Amino acid sequence: MTSDNSRLKKLKFRAWRRGFREADLILGPFADTHVESFSEAQLDGFERLLDQPDQDLYAWIIGTLPIPPEFDTEIMNRIKAFRFEVHANRGDDLGG
């Protein structure tokens, strides 16, 4: 786990403020739930994902576009699994 609290806050902020509501609703809760337990390498991977265009990232998460090999990581798999958890808990169709 990282001790850099400012980095965690920035990542959470970026995850919630994508500018693409559907992505916000998956990435924000995911960040709130998981980033504090991430290793530095996992934080780096999550940050690389957040650097990608919203439409691409969301399409990878919901499976409408193939995930490029460099982004087909453990973190992406966790985000995709989290999407289904959020959808099941909400009981609506915003999880895609």
Score class of each variant (00 low, 15 high):
I75F: 08
D4Y: 06
K12W: 14
G96P: 01
T73Q: 10
G28M: 02
F30R: 01
A15G: 14
G96F: 03
T64K: 14
P29F: 04
F46N: 13
D72S: 05
K12S: 15
F84W: 01
N5I: 01
G19D: 04
H87F: 02
D24P: 09
R78P: 03
R48F: 03
D44N: 08
D56E: 14
G91R: 09
K9V: 06
M76W: 05
R14D: 15
L57V: 12
T33L: 02
D44M: 01
D44K: 02
H34Y: 07
L27A: 06
F46A: 06
P53V: 00
F30T: 03
D56R: 05
A81H: 07
A59M: 08
A81P: 03
K9A: 14
L94V: 15
F71V: 00
D93P: 04
E22S: 10
A31T: 04
F46M: 14
E36H: 05
S6F: 10
T33C: 06
E22D: 12
P66R: 10
D44Q: 05
D72L: 01
F84L: 02
N5R: 11
Q42V: 06
F38L: 04
F84C: 00
R90S: 15
N5Y: 07
P69H: 08
K80I: 02
S39P: 12
P68N: 03
L25Q: 14
I79D: 08
Q52L: 06
S3P: 06
Y58H: 13
F46H: 13
W16C: 13
G28K: 00
D72N: 14
K9M: 14
W16G: 10
A31P: 04
R78M: 07
I62Q: 07
R90D: 12
L8H: 13
R14K: 12
G63R: 02
A88C: 00
M76Q: 07
I67H: 15
P68W: 01
D72F: 05
I26M: 09
F84E: 09
T64N: 15
T33M: 09
A15C: 11
P53T: 05
I61L: 02
V35N: 00
E47R: 10
G63D: 09
Q42E: 13
M76A: 05
S39Y: 09
A59D: 15
N5Q: 13
A31D: 11
L43C: 10
L49R: 15
